[in-house]
């Protein structure tokens, strides 16, 4: 087994008076796909937000590649998310006024890559996800399945170490959902990216290497118990 890449330990998070996480832990190794399952409101999205450094946990630590994310400043965490992480959400994630290729190029440009180069690399990824033909279109002009594939391309264009996917197929039908998962899984394996996949659909979770269940804000690694 490879070294752990991302380790969240005993994470707690309250939203107002509602506890979202109550001592959740998760370890992600380089290149593996981990499905985080649980019913709605179980805290699985919050766990993802904490692991990705979007949200700072109230208690507990998140360590990525030996550095403690939970102790970093907002600026450092932002830079980390730009360079080492990629994100796919359920919907509403593409900037509606940018074309697809500009959307995919955005993370590169945020990190200072020149526009021409960024868009060239974006096109390569659009082709890999079989949506090269919509490059010049606006997100409002393409289908939901195409939109999710553009989003996957955007998550992978920086060749991140970890991709965080929060219900990436939640708004899609089975066929489109399967396609997006196949492409995401394949692309992640090709680039060696680990994937943290939050989903409540078993068939989507089946694309992962292993499963973690979040119940009432605590995560259970069932396979380790078994």
């Amino acid at each position: 087994m490879t070294e752990p890449l991302l380790v969240g330990t005993d994470l707690h998070k309250m939203y107002g008076t509602t506890p979202a996480l109550r001592g959740s832990s998760l370890t992600v190794r380089a290149g593996e796909i981990v499905a985080v399952m649980g019913s709605s409101g179980s805290g699985k999205s919050t766990l993802l937000h904490c692991l990705a450094g979007i949200v700072r946990p109230d208690d507990g630590t998140v360590v990525y590649a030996g550095r403690e994310i939970s102790a970093m400043s907002d600026v450092e965490r932002s830079a980390l998310r730009r360079r080492d992480f990629g994100f796919v959400f359920q919907f509403g994630q593409l900037v509606p006024e940018l074309t697809c290729v500009e959307n995919v190029a955005l993370p590169l440009r945020l990190d200072g890559v020149r526009r021409k180069e960024a868009e060239r690399r974006a096109r390569v990824w659009l082709d890999r996800l079989e949506v090269g033909d919509v490059a010049a279109k606006l997100p409002g002009q393409i289908s939901g399945g195409q939109g999710q594939r553009v989003a996957v391309a955007r998550a992978l264009v920086t060749e991140p170490k970890v991709v965080f996917a929060d219900e990436p197929t939640g708004a899609l039908d089975s066929l489109n959902g399967e396609k997006v998962m196949q492409l995401l899984g394949q692309a992640a394996r090709d680039t060696g990216a680990a994937v943290v996949l939050v989903t409540h659909e078993p068939r989507v979770a089946a694309y992962a290497d292993r499963e973690v269940v979040v119940r009432d804000g605590a995560s259970l690694d069932l396979e380790r118990v078994a």
């Binding site: 196949q182 078993p202 979770a205 069932l222 396979e223 118990v225 078994a226």
Partner: peptide, 20 residues
């Protein structure tokens, strides 16, 4: 139930791999 669930998902992963 948990043990059964893990077993089911393990099989689903195998089938998914075969399917891919």
């Amino acid at each position: 139930l948990d043990v059964q669930r893990t077993e089911h998902l393990r099989l689903m992963r195998d089938v998914t791999r075969r399917k891919t």
